[in-house]
């Protein structure tokens, strides 16, 4: 078994128009910039994107939105230092937004990956986010039913990977990445380094390879924050 792929372009080549794509990262940390940029080059359109945010500046997710490839965004916090790309398209009615509380977003993805179609959470009870959703009382407290979230593709970023797809992450760049890996039909991971099997201590594996479809090495991956500080624009 060898899940390694040589380039980000090959890794994303099969993503079709209309796909639901989960993209890892919280702000720029853990955002698979090279995979997103490869998806821009690939050109798939009418995407639904699941991410915590809505992009920053003119690189990564913001660039994907700026190219008009995203019809719908599911996120918790569409604000950033420079959210102008998203804001402009949203106000022009060119992108739909579903706001999901951050913990609910994480748990919906976890549930999608774990085969749990719905769950109850205290989050958002009594707010407009809960409107239209089933409410149930457990031990005297009210909870909101939320449904699983699954995707056709997950684009994630890790630190070490091997040919079986076992992965580690780096510091707070872990965030949504291990969850999204479990919830997509096809999970494409970029890692800083591909190591031989056995090169990752089994005790240190965060994402076991069963959740990963393709692994591509991107050494010295770009950081969104640094790109934005240099006012980078993609493409």
């Amino acid at each position: 078994m060898d899940k390694t792929i040589q380039t980000p372009a090959e890794a994303v080549a099969a993503i079709p128009d209309g796909a639901t794509v989960m993209i890892g990262g919280f702000g720029g940390s853990g955002a698979p910039i090279e995979l997103i940029h490869a998806l821009i080059d690939h050109g798939a359109k009418h995407l639904t994107v699941v991410n915590n945010n809505a992009g920053n500046g003119h690189v990564g997710l913001a660039a994907l939105i700026e190219q008009g490839q995203v019809d719908r965004l599911i996120c918790s916090f569409p604000r950033s230092a420079d959210p102008s790309v998203f804001v402009e398209r949203y106000k022009a009615g060119k992108i739909a937004l579903e706001i999901v509380p951050q913990g609910t977003l994480a748990e919906r993805i976890r549930a999608g990956g774990a085969g749990i179609p719905a769950f109850y959470t205290p989050t958002a009870f009594g707010t407009e986010v809960a409107e239209g959703k089933p409410i149930a009382e457990f031990d005297g407290r009210s909870y909101v039913q939320e449904r699983w979230l699954k995707a056709d593709v997950a684009l994630i970023k890790g630190e070490l990977g091997d040919a079986h797809g076992n992965m580690t992450y780096r510091m707070a760049a872990r965030n949504f990445n291990p969850l999204m890996a479990t919830a997509a039909t096809t999970t494409i991971a970029q890692v800083s380094q591909i190591v031989p099997l056995g090169g990752i201590d089994p005790e240190h594996v965060i994402t076991p390879g069963i959740f990963v479809t393709h692994v591509v090495e991107v050494a010295n991956a770009a950081q969104e924050e640094e790109l934005n500080r240099s006012e980078a624009v993609y493409p």
Binding site: S76, F77, P78, P101, Q102, G103, T127, V129
Partner: peptide, 12 residues
């Protein structure tokens, strides 16, 4: 543009 982040989870 609304932005809830983790607030709804935290407050409950």
């Amino acid at each position: 543009i609304p932005a809830v982040g983790g607030a709804m989870d935290l407050v409950q």
